[in-house]
Amino acid sequence: MHPRHWEQHRTERTGWLRAAVLGANDGIVSTASLVLGVAAAQATHSNILVAGVAGLVAGAMSMAAGEYVSVHSQADTEQADIERERKEIHRDYLGETQELAAIYIGRGLDPALAKQVAAQLMAHDAVGAHARDELGISETISARPIQAAFVSAASFAVGAAMPLFVTAFTPEESLIPIVSATSLVFLALLGGMAARAGGARVTVGAMRVTFWSALAMGLTAGVGFLFGTSV
């Protein structure tokens, strides 16, 4: 008897990877943009730091709450679909078996084999088979609200700490160019790492994140400059 062979696939990382990348990216972009906007409005160095720290705390809590509500809604939808499938199986077992067989036929199995596979899977775990093959819900990619909320908040805080650290040790007169440059470097590295972890091209991932982040920071700095000169 051969030992069971377990393979790791990138889809297993989908839940936490999405939350971590989104949180860190938002942490860097929003905090750097806030720092640049306040700095462009001619604020003092201490006021810039206070605004950045406030943005870190507020952003982390907002990310956690948003992810929790969003992913919890997804989990509720999945559970509702699974419960409805359970009732349909109880009401029409034969019809649900035929429906499962039709799915396997559509994927390329011989009709006789598809019926045999469907019958065996229904006997083993009818609800699990329909959740996986009809609804596309599996244990590895199912929604986990608390995990997503924690990862989002933590990654946002880590991301936001990067431009804040640079701000704390950068002279006020060179704050805007240094924070802008270092934040874009951080974002390019993050985009490349996320692309590599997800199996995509590193260069494309880095360029995509850097472009949109530079646009966001530029617009925010422009608003701060206009506000600072008109008030």
Rank of each mutant, 00 (worst) to 15 (best):
I137V: 11
A24H: 02
R84N: 14
M217Y: 13
A112D: 12
G37W: 02
T97P: 00
H5Y: 08
E12Q: 14
V71S: 02
I176H: 07
F211Q: 08
P3I: 06
I48Q: 01
M1T: 09
A20I: 04
L56I: 07
I82V: 06
L22S: 03
F150E: 01
Y93H: 14
H5T: 15
L34K: 11
A114H: 05
E85T: 15
T97G: 10
V231Y: 12
G37P: 00
P145D: 04
R10P: 10
A112F: 13
D125P: 10
A114L: 06
V21Y: 02
E7P: 11
L22M: 10
D92W: 15
V179G: 08
V202H: 03
P177M: 05
D125K: 09
T14F: 15
Q42P: 00
L187M: 02
P145Y: 06
F156N: 02
Y93L: 12
G27P: 01
Q116E: 10
A43S: 11
V117C: 10
G136P: 03
A119Y: 13
A118P: 04
A143M: 03
E173V: 08
I105E: 13
V209C: 03
P177F: 02
T203Y: 08
L100R: 05
D125R: 08
S70M: 08
L189Y: 08
V209I: 13
M61A: 13
A64D: 02
H2I: 09
A131E: 05
L184E: 04
A216W: 08
R144K: 14
A119P: 00
G15S: 14
R208Q: 07
Q147P: 03
T170P: 12
E12I: 07
G108R: 14
E139I: 12
R10F: 15
V69T: 06
H45W: 06
A54M: 07
Q8A: 15
S180C: 10
A206T: 00
H124Q: 14
Q120G: 07
I103L: 15
I105A: 11
